[in-house]
Write a protein that binds this DNA or RNA. Sequence first.
DNA 1: AGCACGCCGACT
DNA 2: GTCGGCGTGCTC
Length: 728
Amino acid sequence: MTIARVALPVAAHTAFDYWVPAGLEVGCGQMVRVHLGRRALAGVVVAIGEATEVAGDKLQPVREVIAALPPLPPDVLAMAEFVARYYQEPLGLVLAQMLPPLSAALPRSPVAVAAVALTAEGRAALPLRVARAPRARALLERLQATDGATLGADAIAALTPRARALLRAWLTHGWVAPAIADPMPALPLPPLNADQQTAAAAVVAALSSFAPFLLQGVTGSGKTEVYLAAAAAAIAAGGQVLLLVPEINLTPQLAQRIAAALPGRRTVLLHSRLAGGERRRAWAAAAAGDADLVLGTRLAVFTPLPRLALIVVDEEQDASFKQQDGVRYHGRDVAIWRARQRGVPIVLGSATPSLETLAQAQRGRYGWLKLPRRAVLPAVLPALRFEPGRDPGAVEGLGTALLAAIEARLARGEQALIFINRRGYSPSLLCSACGWQAGCPRCSARLVVHRNDRELRCHHCGHAERLTRACPDCGNVDLMPLGHGTQRLEGALAARFPDARIVRIDRDSTQRKGAFVAMRESVHAGEVDILVGTQMLAKGHDFPRLTLVGVLGADNALYSADFRATERLAALLFQVAGRAGRALLPGEVIVQTDFPAHPLYRALAAHDYDSFAATLLAERRLTGLPPFGHLALLAAEARDRGDVDAFLAAARAAADAVALAAALAVDVYPPVPAGLARRAGLERGQVLVQSAARGPLQRFLPAWREALERLPGRRVRWALDVDPAGFS
DNA sequence: AGCACGCCGACT
DNA sequence: GTCGGCGTGCTC
């Protein structure tokens, strides 16, 4: 009897055996439908055998082979196994992350697939090849007419074999739609400058072998042109390219540039906001080798790519490559592993590389390609000034110097961007009489004033209440909003510059679909004078008339307990500074700070990221933090603090026992409350494990995890985070 | 993850 | 006397 070992999307570190009915073609990597308990689940076959330990009466059959997606190739299965092992997650959950959604949504028969595809596509034009086969066309028209209803087998049987094959091909693998609409005529790539050519040539010379590169280029130096030149060469040589970006917001712009740079090539987009069907089609096109370039967010790193020839990770330092829940993988790190596995070059691009990547480049493990100059020649780096935010002429956190600079931009018809990393009106509400502050009932956090909506909101749990007039403790009606957020600045600027056209960009203002794109277009069209926003605005947007960037509240990150906060602030400031004066107009950046002599600001003024990174690296070396040490974090939460404490104390004891038993050089720290000690009514705490090398930590983690699973539950939810993005 | 089984408080 | 709370454990 043939037995299929199936990884299922359940929190169990084990695969499940099923017998394979005669006539079912089941191989490794095949997606199948099986029953577990009384549920029907989709899983992936990870092994085929002849025998099983499972008792015969318990053994269930494989119910169905999911033919809508091709089987996972061995290299992708191996990648899943690596991710599961490295991040201590069940293989089935890892695989569920990697695949386009298929569990309940995926219909069973090709006919039903057709019905759903057509419903989803609406009245989209039929692919020509199908439309030309008369009977397939008739079937599809009937499907359109019935709007998603399932047709009987007789309709399928009536098709000519050719029509049936075409239909099936379209339905199951999907033809690549012209995924990227390019309204512009294809512009030739601007000729690369010498630095760009050198960089691109180095990557191209390394094609067909594993070769990691750090491509370090100042903002505006034209890293994208280097990616595209290398991609064009890789594709011309018959390869596929995987291009990872941190955010979906950035993909449309980039997609247009790719379409222009790679005429006639097929690009597909892959990110979590795509509808299931679209994502499946893009995935299948990549897996079938039909797509030449896959542009996507971190999840795209898992796409099967039979002809993979080059991986590019843009903005490699960006924290959004690290998944923060579920399978907590790091897209960049998995990409590096994959490049090694497949023997292809990988380019990690950044103006402000992560300390991890920088250290590898310094050690000579990564090729180090530099673009020290801006690509547009007349554009020079902006001038930096450090000014106080509080002075006699200051208005609502906007200092005299910044106000004057904004005024000058308005007079010249140029644009200003005011950046503050805090949404809402003010981050806190204080009673001037008794000192009461509005706090979240469910979190250890202050409530943020959202004056536009007359609400107090918690930014951690979603709690919202009406903005009160009077202090609930003493009845005093003189409640003071304390501190500044984007809404408050927007109002202050509107009062001070009544004729200016002001746009606020933050999570609240861009919730409507398309709002972000509309904003970008109106900025480009010159319909905006002042932009106020959060870090959403820091990335990848090129506004030619923007000549002033003001930064407020930067000092906050310097106080943070998170060891990565300063690194992130540095990356952010260098990025924000790069937003000013990208075209022909000279730019200026004003950072409001109380500590103008801080090494970070000095480095920023000198446009010298490397010297500040060197400072940070020296600190990390002393403390044994990444990249000089490796971390794993056990985070636990429960309704009662006592349960959390008891669990973490037991977890720590288990860790000590594991480390001692296996003589592993790992340090286990005492349990501490999380930075946000209570969230959504749950008390939170953590145990940190640190090791000078990955090896001991990786040997330690499986044993610790098993010990944790045997610990009494005590109403505690916990998760292991390997290589945590940061913690406090 | 579901969905069971299995022991302790308020009801027809 | 039950009905049901969710704590613990299994599912091939």
